[in-house]
Computed example of a mutant assay.
Amino acid sequence: MSHTALIRSHRKPRRSASKIAMRAGVAGGVLSTLAVAGASGSASAAEPVTQTLELPTLTADLAAQVAQSADATQQAAANYQLQAERDSAAAKAAKQAKSDLAEAKQKAEAKKKAQQAARKAAAERASRSAERTTLAAPAASSASTGTSTSTSTSTATGSAAAVIAFVKAQIGDAYVSGGTGPNSWDCSGLVQAAFKQVGVNLPRVSQDQSTAGTQVSLSNLQPGDILYWGSAGSAYHVAVYVGDGMFVGAQNPSTGVAEKPLSYDPPTGAVRVL
């Protein structure tokens, strides 16, 4: 035995059973903690499996969202189409209204022109009636006194006789507007053809024929003179004076080419080309 063995402080301390047990408990607790941690780790490792099982739920939600988005897109498209249809209808209505307004203006303008033409025609008829009344008065006066114009009984000779013979040969032919023979005539067509027989080329229409020669007084007519109705340069009818107070002309569709007295339709004036 050592010489210090009896000295208490120099003895090697012994481990008590309680400490050993406590240490064993601590160790067991640590092992338990590790086991729990391991179990927790295993549980954590199993979480992806749990999430994978929940994917169908997430997919269904996503499908619902997609469906809602599709509905919203379809509604927006429908709203856009409706607005486009409304805009198109409004534009069409505005275009139709503009067209209707233009048509109404055209009709109003045409009506106005027709009224003006009617008033002008009425004024011209009144003027012609006044002129005929004025010309008829001297003719009636001459008839009542037994006198006549100095040319009423004159006999045509030369070219004038040929012109008169031609127009008398056409008496009974039809009147046709624009007619130039040989069996139908209008007034200026007959006069032009008659003077062409003697080499005189007259204009085609009444207005021009009324200024083709020298203006002569109705009181100094000679056979072969051209009679006109209306103003010189704007005459609406012509015929040929054939003497003895008579004239031959293509009058109208009802009479055709006929010989009439001056009193039947007193002319406005006369021109001489022969």
Rank of each mutant, 00 (worst) to 15 (best):
A63V: 11
K113R: 14
E131H: 08
Q51M: 01
V167G: 01
T157F: 04
A104K: 02
A130W: 12
S154V: 11
R132A: 04
F166V: 14
A97S: 12
E131P: 14
G41C: 15
A35Q: 12
T134Y: 10
S152N: 07
L62E: 01
A160G: 07
P138M: 04
A108D: 01
A102H: 05
S42E: 03
T57F: 00
A117Q: 10
T157E: 09
A161E: 11
V163D: 03
G41F: 08
Q116L: 13
A165P: 08
A63T: 09
A77Q: 06
A67Q: 02
A46N: 04
E124I: 12
K107T: 13
Y80T: 10
K95G: 08
V163E: 00
S159M: 12
P138A: 10
I171Y: 00
L55V: 10
L82H: 14
A169C: 06
A126S: 02
S148N: 07
T50W: 04
E54K: 04
S69V: 02
A94C: 08
A37V: 15
T147R: 00
A76K: 05
A70S: 05
A60Y: 05
V167T: 01
G28F: 10
A72L: 13
T153K: 02
A60H: 06
Q106D: 03
G158T: 14
T149N: 03
V36G: 05
L135S: 01
A161H: 07
P56R: 02
G146I: 11
K105C: 12
S129W: 04
A91F: 14
G28V: 15
S159N: 09
T59R: 00
A140I: 05
T52M: 00
Q74R: 08
A37H: 09
T155M: 05
A93Y: 14
S44N: 08
L82S: 13
A90M: 10
A114S: 14
S152Y: 05
Q115T: 05
T73H: 12
A27K: 07
S150N: 02
A27V: 11
Q115N: 07
Q81W: 13
A156C: 06
D61F: 03
A137V: 13
A97P: 15
A137I: 09
A123N: 06
Q83N: 14
A77D: 13
I171W: 01
A89Y: 09
S99M: 13
L53K: 09
T52F: 01
S40E: 08
G29Y: 07
A130K: 11
R132S: 11
A136W: 11
E131N: 09
Q170S: 06
A60F: 05
A161F: 07
K168S: 08
T33D: 04
S44A: 07
A161Q: 10
R119M: 04
Q106W: 06
A117L: 09
D71G: 04
A45H: 09
Q116W: 04
A63S: 12
Q81G: 14
A46M: 12
E131V: 14
S141T: 12
K111Q: 06
Q170N: 03
A110H: 11
L62R: 03
D87G: 11
S150A: 07
A76H: 05
K111H: 15
L58A: 00
L31F: 02
L55M: 02
S141Q: 09
A46W: 04
T50G: 00
V167P: 00
T52Y: 01
T149I: 10
E103N: 14
